[in-house]
Amino acid sequence: MLKNLRSKLSWLAIMVGGFILINVGVLTGVINTFIENALVTVGINIILAVGLNLIIGFSGQFSLGHAGFMAIGAYATAIVTQNMATPLGFYLAMALGVVIAIVAALIVGVPTLRLRGDYLAIATMGAAEIIRVVINNLKITNGPAGMFNIPPLASWPTVYILMCVTTVVIVNFIHSRAGRAVMAIRDDDIAAESIGINPTKWKLAAFVLGAATAAIGGSLHASYLQTIAPSDFGIMNSISLLIIVVLGGVGSMTGTFVAAIVLGIIDTALQNFGTLRMVIYALALILLMVFKPSGLLGRYELSFGRKRRARKEAASS
């Protein structure tokens, strides 16, 4: 019990410390609007990628449709807050987005989650594209032009706090009965069934939770940037989230944080390079994968209280 307390307090200290650090930066002007923007983008990417890592790294389901669920959260927020521009409206909108994303995840997941590997990736990608095409053609979403003048109801502290909350929820989910069941299916689904675990149910649970956090990320994205368009939620956006997860290490939440921050820095540093930016980015990606295919951190997790150990990468096939 004491061990748990120490671990909890350490994490709390890190979260509060990070908050204070950014706050001091903003107050002293070290963090200008440009850097704040970059930080918020990193924060939203973390929310999205942590959920995607739950799906890919921990439940072993290769999903390429994360941007679809993000789009649902973003559009729900844009539509609701344009009619109800209050903090209450914002959180109601976010909750609505989460609920719709959960329903969509169930509709997508029930038939497709029995597919394996690349087939599931292609199916989820297709589902996300369908969501995008529907948004592209609806009146309420203002079609391909997208929505603008969305009330700015999410500031950087909102993003920061929600990043902490979603991460804590997902990490706690992983370190529980549910998380163990999900990882067992990832490691060997036939063995998992033989000990009474219903694979469909638990895969769906992880998929739905991941989709719900994607909706939260989308909601913050819409409210912070104030403009959204269907083209913000295409295949390339799902892929850039996948890149964060794989770069950090599939199955390492610490890695997801590190990768999101590193990519944020690279992105900001290359801002003035125009097209060359993407060329360098692509080359860096190829080189990293060729020389470190398990990602920056493999399956390592930062932890307090527990004995530290890097998990053996056994199930890498």
């Binding site: 067992a184 063995a191 675990i197 053996k312």
Partner: peptide, 27 residues
Amino acid sequence: LFGAMSVKENVLVARTHLYHEDFLGTV
């Protein structure tokens, strides 16, 4: 076996169907 999980986790996960947990209490 569940190769990436520890021996104890392999045993714990076999108990999945023997008890329930509430989502909120867990997270």
